[in-house]
């Protein structure tokens, strides 16, 4: 029988692992799928962490995570990308080897940060840095949205692991805000696709000094 603590570790590992895998994926659907999977682990983590704490409300929170981050946002992104006939192949600024090198650097940095505090969870710092590096290294719009969502997952993981028990109303508010953000980004990405016929941010470099 796997104990609750094991589940907890498993979900944490999954959260990080799927996010790591998503970085290397060159195809959009795969990226979205991995994001959904890592969010699923976050939902699971929410449940186990709150059970470990002996609270029940984590369940609702996990439900929210599931509904918004596992189902709704990935679906919206996949839909928007499909509607816009976005090229499913995304481009990198860096070669794959460099990409992994950057990811390793991010993880190392997160490890160093988390090492300074016993209570600051490694996974959330790592996710924030991974999200940022995803946004820096990729050239397409959807990766930026996903990168933002990965960062957001990292922050949520901080809330779940380190703080825990954030009031439901606040949780829901944050979910709604994040979802609204993702929606606005999706709508905007549609505009970009319409205007430029591409989802490549390289075209979005008109505004310079």
């Amino acid at each position: 029988m796997i104990s609750l603590a094991h589940w907890n570790q498993l979900f944490t590992a999954g959260l990080l692992l799927f996010s790591l895998m998503l970085i290397g994926k060159p195809r959009l659907p795969a990226i979205i799928r991995h994001f959904a999977l890592s969010s699923l682990c976050l939902a699971g983590l929410t449940v186990t962490a709150s059970l470990l704490r002996g609270e029940a409300q984590g369940l609702y929170s996990a439900l929210g995570t599931f509904a918004f981050k596992v189902v709704f946002i990935p679906a919206v992104l996949a839909y928007a990308a499909k509607r816009a006939h976005a090229s499913m192949q995304v481009k990198f600024y860096l070669r794959p080897a460099m990409t992994y090198f950057a990811v390793a650097a991010a993880l190392l940095a997160a490890y160093l940060v988390a090492g300074r505090f016993a209570t600051v969870p490694f996974v959330s710092i790592a996710l924030v840095l991974l999200g940022l590096s995803l946004m820096i290294m990729r050239k397409d719009l959807y990766s930026q949205i996903i990168g933002f969502m990965v960062m957001e997952n990292g922050v949520a993981a901080y809330g779940v692991i380190a703080v825990g028990g954030i009031p439901l109303l606040v949780e829901i508010g944050i979910f709604l805000t994040v979802t609204a953000g993702a929606l606005v980004m999706a709508v905007l990405s549609r505009h970009v696709q319409e205007l430029y016929a591409t989802g490549d941010t390289e075209r979005l470099t008109e505004l310079t000094e």
């Binding site: 600024y93 940022l132 946004m135 820096i136 941010t201 390289e202 979005l204 470099t205 310079t208 000094e209």
Partner: peptide
């Protein structure tokens, strides 16, 4: 020249 229009660069600046 910092304002090169590349959003990834701007994100890197924040980082």
């Amino acid at each position: 020249r910092l304002h090169n229009g590349i959003i990834q660069f701007y994100i890197a600046l924040i980082l």
